[in-house]
């Protein structure tokens, strides 16, 4: 089916990206769009796997910006659905089809992954607590409850929602996506997904202190709007 693209935002994943993309290509029949957010290692070269669309930001903008670039490119290619998929190997390719089936059956406009409904292999304890806190933050700012409000695995109907556009460049985009669901009156559902925490991905993950940055970016973005 040519109506779907997998968007893979990437920053310094030279060690793993080739394997991630090869697995995606071997298991799903969809176009893959990799957005390199100005990596400083050889990620761009490693990501040039046959059949993959490759886009490069000439300046590092952030994961939110990379996702939006992927979404805009997917719209240019005429795609109806996108799945956002992390470049570090944490996400499971097997979760893609069940998420897309929900969109295709018109049961929702956006499907959000939840590691707490699914599986979080080797998740650090502190991360569990930080994510639980983020649920309360999301509820306080939007009135919406999620079991996992900061999960990068999502399937989105971008064609019927042309105003679904991420403006937060960095990690506050995850909170902004919840706002976009509300503003665009999108039907949403959470589904179980698997997040695999490896030594590699744990070392690359966000620090707890970055949560304060995220709150500040999100709050100032909303105030300015």
């Amino acid at each position: 089916m040519n109506d779907t693209a997998i968007i893979v935002p990437m920053y310094n994943e030279g060690k793993v990206i080739k394997n991630v993309l090869k697995e995606l290509i071997s298991k799903v029949p969809y176009d893959i769009i990799v957005v390199d957010d100005c990596s400083t290692d050889d990620s761009y070269q490693q990501a040039c796997v046959k059949g993959v669309y490759l886009i490069k930001h000439i300046v590092n903008l952030g994961q939110g910006a990379a996702l939006q670039t992927g979404i805009e490119f997917a719209r240019k290619l005429g795609k109806k659905y996108v799945v956002t998929f992390d470049a570090d190997g944490q996400h499971s390719v097997e979760d893609i089809e069940p998420f897309l089936n929900v969109l295709r059956e018109n049961k929702a406009d956006i499907v959000l992954g939840s590691r707490f409904l699914g599986k979080a292999e080797n998740m650090p304890e502190y991360k569990k607590h930080v994510l639980q806190l983020s649920r309360y933050f999301t509820y306080a700012t939007t009135g919406m409850w999620f079991t996992d409000s900061h999960n990068g695995f999502r399937a989105i109907n971008i064609k019927d929602f042309p105003n679904f556009n991420i403006s937060q460049n960095r990690m506050a985009h995850a909170s902004e996506i919840i706002d976009l669901i509300k503003k665009n009156k999108m039907r949403y559902v959470e589904m179980p997904c698997t997040i695999k925490y490896t030594d590699y991905s744990k070392q690359k993950g966000q620090s707890v202190l970055n949560s304060i940055n995220i709150i500040f970016e999100y709050a100032s973005g909303r105030l300015i709007q």
Partner: peptide, 27 residues
């Protein structure tokens, strides 16, 4: 100044995105 800087960042983002999409390639 903060608001102006944020607006400038948005403009920079648009330019970088435009360049990235324009130069996109299929491997």
């Amino acid at each position: 100044l903060y608001v102006k800087q944020k607006n400038q960042n948005e403009s920079i983002t648009k330019i970088i995105r435009h360049i990235g999409i324009k130069d996109a390639k299929k491997c």
